[in-house]
Design a protein around this nucleic acid. Sequence first.
RNA 1: GGGCAGUUACCAAAGUGGCCAACUGGGGCUGACUGUAACUCAGCUGUCUUUCGACUUCGGAGGUUCGAAUCCUUCACUGCCCA
Length: 376
Amino acid sequence: MTFEIQANDKASNARAGKIVTDHGVIETPIFMPVGTVASVKAVHFHELKEDIKAQIILGNTYHLFLRPGIDTLERAGGLHKFEGWDKPILTDSGGFQVFSLSEQRKITEEGAVFRSHIDGSKHLFTAERAVDIQRSIGADIIMAFDECTPGTADYNYAKKSMEMTHRWLQRGITHFNNTEPKYGYNQTYFPIVQGCVYTDLRKISAEFIASQNCDGNAIGGLAVGEPTEKMYEMIEVVNEILPKDKPRYLMGVGTPQNILEGIERGVDMFDCVMPTRNGRNGMLFTSQGIMNMKNLKWKNDFSPLDEFGTSYVDSAYSKAYLRHLFISKEYLALQIASIHNLAFYLWLVGEARKHIFAGDFSSWKKGMLEQVGRRL
RNA sequence: GGGCAGUUACCAAAGUGGCCAACUGGGGCUGACUGUAACUCAGCUGUCUUUCGACUUCGGAGGUUCGAAUCCUUCACUGCCCA
């Protein structure tokens, strides 16, 4: 994997670049749709590629390990072949599940023991195991196994957790270097900065992560309960330290506003379930603001779903029709909303990229922020 | 014509003397959702009020009672059965 910066914004830390993987090029800044269980929920891969124009998608180690399982993925020849996606894939390590499934896991120095949410069976995830599974999945970019601490963690817990994440990282890197890709193309390993909302911890973590000299670096443990301003502050602190010539990936973020703020602070890659999950729950993100499609006000509004939208669903369907589909609990509603939201997110980062090249990112961002935050 | 059962908020349906503005579903309105255990979750859904609370309700009218959605009388309507 290689990364090349193609343009820097004049008034901010925003940059535009190009990541090259064996499955193709990723133009940054980029948003990566989340396809946890070998599926971007409610969206065909055809639409993902042709209409939404996704350049890279995610998969999840924990979920894919439970179903369909490693054996099936290996027999399929890896996740790309299994799901029919020939562009880049990034897999999360299961670190987020340490946070989101905190009720049914136990953390030790060795790793985390999960009780499966599917059948209750116990599974030990370690730094090494996460590498092995991600080798079997065959993602282009694989993530270190970390503990994603909640934004409300106290200092001592955050410090101990961060230090353990660092030890896990060294074990993971060693194991990564001692193992080979399984399907004939290269994989690269991204470490993850932790440290919760504590500036000194974030600095220590960023310095440690930078010293590992990986191809790219991730910022984790944000947008997990801390105030948004704190998140922005932590991004600034960390990006001061993370190498400029490596892609920076802000994990799990976020709203359109979060993404623009992240780009301005020098982040290159984002992923988030919001466009798909919120879409399925009836919320549309548009360049003009946020719409709750279940609201009465759309009942007889036959105007296009999004007159400024770039996806075919934006002109093919009306607001009134999509509202009807949601109210009627029709599956098509989930598809249309998910396609629209993902297309919007990809459009948004694409526009950001253009304005970085043009050198007027910050002024463009200011106007866009006001628009996307409106409630329609 | 006779007998029986029933009539509760937008719909369905509990409640059979005070703890009832009235259980529960559905529907409706609004909100939440950030490396996906999520087509999920939460609040509201008689009127007025920010809250406390006040007021008007359980087919209509009248009555019994300190007190009625609940008991009595009567009228109206609906369903089933017998002629």
